[in-house]
């Protein structure tokens, strides 16, 4: 389990992470959402032991980052957003290099090749690979040390839909292998597709953390959308309409609103509880 307690990270006057706490349970795909500059990359860097926190505590599998950064790095792996390998080397030379410096086992090497379907590209120079193949090589390198946790920092940027699906499918396999995955992406559909749990970070603070199903279910959201078939009466009611037909309200005001609509012969087309998808929910939570 990863446990982050009240961490603060500042860059000069800028507060990148502000008293942030969260827990990531084992064997899950954990989605980390936030707009650019929300603090996701800083959090990933802290979880990887690349940068220190100013305040607070980070524990990974019971190891305190402050004292066991080396051990934590040995069991974790980061897949950077950029293609962090050598374009002038072949696929094999890249994999050989990264496995040798980590003293990786042969089985891990072969596993990384197989999961990412790179066997037939071994002798190809990395610079000549397609965008999707490059992404797969980038991921394969991250698997060489047989990690318990993998951090994916927007791994599908600039990838075609077919390769994206292949990458997402391979990430699901890591969960089956008992690896905890922390996944950041701007593509909400990807998060919806693969994540078990999601945390939303905004301006360095944790806005929401819950299971994906809970976030998307109607029960947890207080926001309700009432879609009406507008008529002349609606103008006199002084109610704010979105798209000329949607009234935003809350659970506590819903009954009163329905009564008013009934009294004024305004028909209701549908009532929707919560966000219809993660993207809408994310936008609501982050304004």
């Amino acid at each position: 389990m990863i446990k982050v307690s009240n961490i603060v990270k500042k860059y000069g006057d800028i507060i990148a992470l502000d008293d942030l706490s969260l827990e990531i349970k084992d064997d899950r795909i954990f989605g980390l959402l936030g707009v650019n500059g929300a603090g996701k990359t800083t959090l990933l860097s802290i979880l990887n032991g690349l940068i220190d926190v100013d305040e607070g505590k980070v524990e990974v599998f019971g190891l305190d980052m402050k004292y066991h950064a080396k051990e934590i790095k040995d069991i974790s792996s980061i897949i950077p957003q950029h293609l962090a390998f050598y374009e002038k080397l072949t696929v094999k030379e890249n994999l050989d290099f990264f496995s040798q410096i980590q003293k990786a086992k042969k089985a891990n090497y072969e596993n990384a090749l197989e999961i990412n379907s790179l066997e037939y590209l071994l002798n190809q120079k990395a610079s000549t690979l397609s965008g999707g193949q490059k992404r797969r090589l980038n991921i394969a390198i991250g698997l060489l040390n047989d990690p318990k946790i993998i951090y994916f920092d927007e791994p599908t940027v600039g990838v075609d839909p077919k390769s994206r699906n292949e990458i997402l499918d391979s990430i699901k396999r890591y969960r089956e292998l008992g690896i905890t995955v922390v996944y950041t992406s701007h593509y909400m559909t990807e998060i919806e597709k693969i994540c078990d749990e999601v945390a939303i970070i905004d301006k360095g603070k944790l806005v929401k953390q819950d299971l994906l199903d809970n976030l998307l279910s109607n029960r947890v959201s207080d926001k309700i959308s009432v879609e009406i078939i507008p008529n002349e009466n609606i103008k006199s009611l002084n109610i704010q309409l979105r798209d000329n037909c949607i009234i935003k309200t809350t659970k506590s005001e819903l009954f009163q609103l329905l009564q008013i609509l009934e009294d004024n012969n305004i028909y209701i087309k549908q009532i929707r509880y919560g966000a219809s998808n993660l993207e809408k929910y994310f936008l609501e939570m982050t304004n």
Binding site: S45, N48, G49, L50, K70, K73, D74, S76, S77, I78, P80, Q81, H82, L83, A84, F85, Y86, F98, I101, Q102, I141, N145
Partner: peptide, 12 residues
């Protein structure tokens, strides 16, 4: 630029 140094650093 490509974060290879970061990756190497994350590999101890």
């Amino acid at each position: 630029k490509q974060n290879t140094l970061i990756r190497l650093n994350s590999m101890n």
